[in-house]
Nucleic acid binder design. Structure first.
Lengths: 200, 200
DNA sequence: CTTGTATTATGTCAGGCGTATGAAAACAGA
DNA sequence: TCTGTTTTCATACGCCTGACATAATACAAG
């Protein structure tokens, strides 16, 4: 009976506008009015698709996570089958760094969301679950490679997993021009190369 | 002629109140009124010491950096003289992690400030300079240890420096309960142990 | 004590915010 | 065409913000 508008598509359009704001002006500037202006819609229209600011932010964040996953999946398809775990880990790490414009936008969204989550138990639990899932995935990869002898047996899987996760710290360093993207990639490359069959 | 009040001391008192707010409620909640309430002073009084919100934030941030440096210096004094570069690096890294309440407060201040700096060229340059200084210090330690044969000669000093800086990424992981503080410490310990005379 | 300056207290202001309301417009079915 | 629902839009309310202005107070020097 009603007008036919793709709800989901509209929300994604708005979410992308939100990314642009967060990317260029920061999380706090992402107000309802500002997002509406950036998306080229009226405030009322935006309210029709997101009944509250919080709902909008949550959606934009989940959408950003989805996009990041999609980028990783796309990269995985381009790897050898089956891919070498070292290449998988390198892909995951590099796709989380703000190297290209779209990755930068989602990276900044993530940074802002994480900061927000520190003071909001609900968000903290949600973000924590997602990250722990990611950790579990990396951990599984490491353990499998350890079993397969691709990693020297004297390496502790838990510690190596945590070290790899910590390398996401490069994101901040790149954003602030403390290390060049190229240098971060080289360091990640080096770390993984040393982990996989370093001293064998 | 006037009343005798230690300006600096008063500003630090206010800065600590600001830390408490940022720690518990987040950067955006750190309004003039909220900080004044937390510090137990009137709004006008606060405005007397900080003519603008931005000035207050900058001061609180510089003060936080000072406090972190002081913690490191205090730890350095407790080390062997001259200290082993491995121990120095471990100290620097661990003091930047949110392990104790005061370290957590300054860590959260830093996280919020860095996020803000991403969208403000002035702040970005300022924060960038500080971080690059830190990078240079770590780099010098690495190169010296390399010369002294404490680090295997096949290690690249620039890459190793960046890898160590990236380990500050543990701060976020700890905040979100993705890795236990104990595990982060173990990982840092392991990484440094492997760097210093790993395969010799 | 008087004076002058540092400090404290209080009030006001315009502006931006999230949200709510209600009516107009668009449109698919009967 | 008529009907009912979705979508659009403008406006308004209440709240909070940073900032500014102004008045009251405290206190050291002369």
């Amino acid at each position: 009976m009603p007008k036919q508008v793709d709800h989901r598509e509209r929300r994604e359009l708005i979410a992308r506008a939100l990314w642009r704001i967060v990317d260029q002006q920061g999380w706090t500037r992402a107000t309802m009015r500002e997002v509406a202006r950036e998306a080229g819609v009226s405030l009322g229209q935006l309210q029709h698709y997101f009944s509250s600011r919080g709902e909008m932010l949550v959606f934009a964040m989940e959408f950003a996570s989805q996009q990041t996953s999609a980028r990783i999946d796309r990269g995985l398809a381009a790897l050898d089958q089956p891919p070498h775990p070292r290449d998988v880990l390198r892909l995951v790490l590099t796709e989380m760094l703000p190297l290209r414009p779209d990755a930068r936008a989602t990276s900044r969204m993530n940074a802002a969301y994480v900061l927000e989550a520190m003071h909001d138990p609900t968000l903290q639990r949600q973000v924590g679950i997602g990250l722990r899932d990611g950790r579990a995935m990396v951990g599984r990869l490491i353990r499998q490679a350890l079993e397969d002898g691709q990693i020297p047996p004297d390496r502790d899987p838990d510690i190596e997993t945590d070290l790899i996760l910590a390398l996401t710290g490069f994101a901040t360093l790149i954003e602030l021009d403390v290390v060049e993207p190229q240098a971060a990639l080289a360091a990640i490359h080096q770390h993984l190369d040393r982990l996989f069959r370093a001293d064998a």
